[in-house]
Design a protein around this nucleic acid. Structure first.
Lengths: 338, 338
DNA sequence: CTGAAAGCGCTTACAG
DNA sequence: CTGAAAGCGCTTACAG
């Protein structure tokens, strides 16, 4: 590989001058500048980002640790994050925790070792050793979507979506369709989104004079298989629910799998709704009613907050609002309530 | 940040010794070793991967440039790649080209500047400036899924799937259901997968005594919107096709969108099949018949090949085989041909 | 406007 | 078995 030294030699200047030209330092004579530039193109020289990082103590890289790449919500988030980061001159390295705390820690470890400038985390579990370490090392850090509710992370901004209004709207929608026995499949209790969505749902139900019995609360882990299991359990109940609200799109997929394998139809035999809207929800049989997060904005805001921290401008938490997209999976709006 | 020097000081040894302990060099006395180790834990020291990379000329990082992260096929591929890489002690940085050659080049540029050890590319277009540069710089490089058919890349191994047998099976399936007017939505002509799939399809059709008229060949770009447009064009034909075969899952999604917006039903009004199988194809209305690639194995093999190149073991191209998963979107298997 | 020199945090021959 | 020293490829005060 050709180095800055080769360029200096060919241009007949010192490496310091080459460096100045490359970094657009103003104090360089125009003809020196062009001599250097042509040496650069002649040699096809490209600065070594590793060396530069070692010297400047910045890598212009952001780490993004998400819980599950195969989940379209996180894929969209990752894409938005990368777009926003690139616009600001940062690269992003994605770590896929696969909903496993050990893998999450592995990625945070690796990212920290690589001296990324900042960390975006959607934690899989509560505070793990590495998340705590990152926080106390004062690594610029922002939580997206999910966060950790511990004192150690009090200073970490959270960029997230508040779904309670949309969940209220959903319950209103369900009530209007005549449903009363309504069940939910929650996420892992170690995740904030896991608990929060269940709580919002319970509140909304209460506001409509409905209760949420424990047997109607399924325990999921945000992956399809758990949605399937929870659905099977609901179906085995003496009095099964009329509606299942899956708190993420993969568990909704699992629920559909289970219903389908038993020959049950949505919404005739069971109504279904999901948290997180994804493109293919439009094409399922029937199209699925969902609480939609402004995913792209979530990603942009998270990057904005993180770069604010990195560049010393500070950052605030931000809470966006989800909205309900009603489709046909809970019954026809135009039909009369059963 | 605490550095190797701090550790050396605290342990009362030289940095060389600390380095040896960290790298498990055998020639270190046991008690020195443990003194160093406890200094490491006391200080919470973590080696700086940037410095190490500068010195050793390796980053233990693989670059993966894919055409579209939002495409579930590539997401699955990326996940498989990361898994296989992690097992071998490599990290991976994903670059999303979004089917844009300029973005593809941006990512290859960035990746090369960061001195990744090797590059995995699923090229969006034919050879771009940067892909050529990477190839001629002899950067360890492997093509996955798509490749570039140019002399400059003759030495680059290709890990891909051959879909022709599955496409033949698909055509047989369509014929058995009585279909004769069969259209295809191809990918960009700059991509190998774009052309190859159309060619395989044309061959299969010919083998069944059917031809593929130009008006039945839609020009897509592997994104949903183009599937929609191509479908609209087919529908505007004097004699529209009876079947549309979309050469990726997103264009199939677009085709469904278009059919749906016109109130047309699959397969009654139009049969539909797709290249690439994705989890939600099971849940669409109706479930979609697809040519499934062994995506996970594709990713594993690609990493195997690339690490082979990096570590001097060499690498061969590998071609896996796709298979047909027939579902209901082309008509019922048990129905009599119309 | 330009160069010599120090230093970022490591690894690794070379001595001893 | 261990240390002093060179060097990876840059950037940046400090002089001039």
């Amino acid at each position: 590989m050709t180095s800055i030294k080769d360029v200096a030699t060919r241009a007949g200047v010192s490496v310091a001058t080459v460096s100045r030209v490359l970094n657009e330092h103003p104090a360089v004579r125009e003809d020196t500048r062009s001599r250097v530039l042509s040496a650069v193109t002649d040699l096809g020289y490209r600065p070594n980002a590793v060396a530069r990082s070692l010297r400047t103590h910045q890598t212009r890289t952001l780490g993004l640790v998400i819980s599950d790449v195969l989940n379209p919500f996180f894929t969209e988030l990752a894409r938005a994050v990368e777009d926003a980061a690139r616009e600001r001159g940062y690269s992003v390295i994605i770590g896929n925790a696969d909903e496993r705390p050990d893998l999450q820690d592995h990625h945070i470890r690796t990212l920290l070792d690589r001296r990324i400038d900042g960390l975006l985390v959607s934690p899989t579990h509560g505070g793990t050793a590495l998340t705590r370490e990152a926080a106390q090392a004062r690594t610029p850090m922002v939580f997206v979507d999910r966060w950790i509710d511990e004192a150690a992370f009090a200073h970490v901004p959270v960029v997230r979506t508040d779904g309670s209004a949309a969940v209220h709207a959903l319950v209103g929608h369900l009530r209007a369709l005549g449903h009363r026995r309504i069940a939910i499949i929650g996420g892992p209790s170690e995740t904030t989104t896991g608990n929060e969505r269940v709580d919002a749902f319970r509140d909304a139900l209460a506001a409509h004079g409905l209760s949420l019995p424990a047997r109607y609360v399924g325990q999921g882990d945000f992956q399809a298989e758990s949605g399937r299991r929870a659905t099977a359990r609901f179906l085995a109940l003496e009095e099964p629910p009329e509606v299942i609200f899956a708190t993420d799109n993969l568990m909704a997929l699992g629920a559909m799998d289970e219903l389908r394998s038993r020959g049950l139809r949505v919404p005739r035999d069971m109504a279904l709704a999901a948290f997180d809207d994804v493109p293919w929800f439009l094409h399922t049989d029937p199209p699925i009613t969902a609480v939609a997060q402004p995913t792209e904005e979530l990603g942009h805001r998270a990057v904005h907050a993180l770069t604010g921290l990195i560049e010393g401008r500070g950052a605030d938490s931000v809470t966006l609002t989800a909205r309900l997209t009603a489709r046909r999976s809970c019954g026809e709006d135009e039909g009369s309530p059963t």
